[in-house]
Design a protein around this nucleic acid. Sequence first.
DNA 1: TTAAATCATGTAAACGTTTTCATAAATTTA
DNA 2: TAAATTTATGAAAACGTTTACATGATTTAA
Lengths: 343, 343
Amino acid sequence: MASLKDVAEKAEVSIATVSRVINGNSHVQMDTRHKVQKAIKELNYRPSRVAQRLRSKGKESKLIGLVLPDIENPFYVDMIRGIEATAYNQGYSVIIGNFSQNKARSEMYIDILKSEGVNGFIVAPVNNEDPKVRELIKSGYQVTCVDRDMEGVEVDSVKINNEEAAYGAIKHLINLGHKRIGHVGGQWDIPTTKSRLAGYKRALLESGLPIEEELIITRSSDFQNGVEATTALLDLNRPPTAVFTGNNLLTLGALRAIHARELKIPSDIAIVGFDDMYWSELLNPPLTAVHQDGFEIGRRATELLLSRLVEPNRPCIKVILDAKLRIRKSCGAAQNGRLSTDL
Amino acid sequence: MASLKDVAEKAEVSIATVSRVINGNSHVQMDTRHKVQKAIKELNYRPSRVAQRLRSKGKESKLIGLVLPDIENPFYVDMIRGIEATAYNQGYSVIIGNFSQNKARSEMYIDILKSEGVNGFIVAPVNNEDPKVRELIKSGYQVTCVDRDMEGVEVDSVKINNEEAAYGAIKHLINLGHKRIGHVGGQWDIPTTKSRLAGYKRALLESGLPIEEELIITRSSDFQNGVEATTALLDLNRPPTAVFTGNNLLTLGALRAIHARELKIPSDIAIVGFDDMYWSELLNPPLTAVHQDGFEIGRRATELLLSRLVEPNRPCIKVILDAKLRIRKSCGAAQNGRLSTDL
DNA sequence: TTAAATCATGTAAACGTTTTCATAAATTTA
DNA sequence: TAAATTTATGAAAACGTTTACATGATTTAA
């Protein structure tokens, strides 16, 4: 790779002048400017981001660190696409740490990204406390939370109203006549798990239905737990007539468990899932699910972060996006021909 | 972030000594070593990768650049996980460029990653020629190709035998009695598209079946094309009794098109897909598909790259992994109770 | 005992930028 | 015309490392 020095020599000027040309500094004469631009082109020169980053310690580093729970989850993949698209548009690179719902790995990635000299972070905190993220904020890094928020900290965040979305999903089941609704949730200390559970409970209470602990299982957020927890629900003396699954991996696991028993959906048991995929309609049966727009969440989060890099002390902004319930065939007949409904 | 200098001051030694302690250089006395380690701990010091990278220009940069066609495709997500796991294990960071099957974006990412000072690249070349990747190799970067290879270049690569895998899939259909088999392939100039098409043709020829151009559509590699191409096949005067789809997005598109016509799989039309997902069995119907192990491909590619960084001039290695056909319910009754078959 | 070798540590240069300061040339002002 | 201002450019420092070289202390060899 050609360096500033190479360009300077070729153009017979100092490296300072070359730097000025590159950064659009006005104090450089037309003909020298042209000489330099010619040399840059001939050498196919591009400035080293590494050196830029070292020199200007954060301020101009043009690198965003991304710390996400699970790259296997299509919802996060959509978010990554939204983040990438927005960031690269503005000349930022993105470096991804995928911690697989594992606290230790999350901390490891944060350390690595710090030492990579990132400019700011987009993070899904492991839980409401997440001391590592708190420390990050305290020590002056710019941070935006996605998908999950943190309490008692001044930090930008983008997420949906999980409680309300879950409430809507359960209401849908109740309206279809279900009275015994099971819930398979994710890891208990993840904020979204809590909110979705809260929405579930509120809907039941509001309709005068009892909340039965045996119908609620919140353990880990992965496929395997989806299988096991659903199986456990099916094994109850009085199994539920419907299940609400807390994320898309759990949903897939639940489907597996139900199919393994050769039960019919929705006549034997109905299912409504949290998180929608564009291929949800191709599942057996086409899945009724809560849709949240991962791409948009990513886009908004990136905009928030970039704006905060420019104006570090502005008051923090909490973005809460809407989710939609996409009604397909896993809960019973579609109602009034509507395909989706605002929550 | 604390720097070497801070540690040096605290421990009352020179920065050189601190550096030696960190890098395990033997020439440092026990008690100074302890003093330094204590200071490091107290200041929570971690070396700046940015500075390390600048200083040792590539040689020790500990950063791998990843340039992939499509992060929406679960197959590549598996690959990323394999690459990440292996890389981080050895202290390398990974930075991802996702070019969405777009040549210009692929080139942009390669430039960015170069200027990020990556140590080496793992790349899926856009096609056999890919002049940008050739140039990369020529200018001395270490490169490993994944999923796709390049002709006439000395470069490590990891992929499966696509021709053979496609051949096996088609043979399976033929054995079930299908005589008119359509093929929906990806973008024509992608190497995998060509190989899979070749396997398709070989299987037909070998069984004495004609190759009919109207049954073959290779356009772009995305979901939308899967829908459109399959619809076109169904609209033929003599539609095929089976389709072979060239990647998982095309498969999902094909399913959508078939369901839109309310045709029964496999009685009206059978389908075998390239690329398997762990949730393929949950599709309607459970999908018979060619399985390639993305995680393993990623792992092997990373090992190859890291080994080449140590020994840049070793002869190049071409790894070809096996694919398996996972037989489920989209082509007809499972045979002899076998669930999968080596290709 | 003395020369040679080894060991522990420090000094300073280098990596590729950006930026402050200095300086010389050109322009404006009085 | 002389002084003051503006403009174009260069020199050098700094960012945080690694490492070649230098130096003085200690050990080994003869």
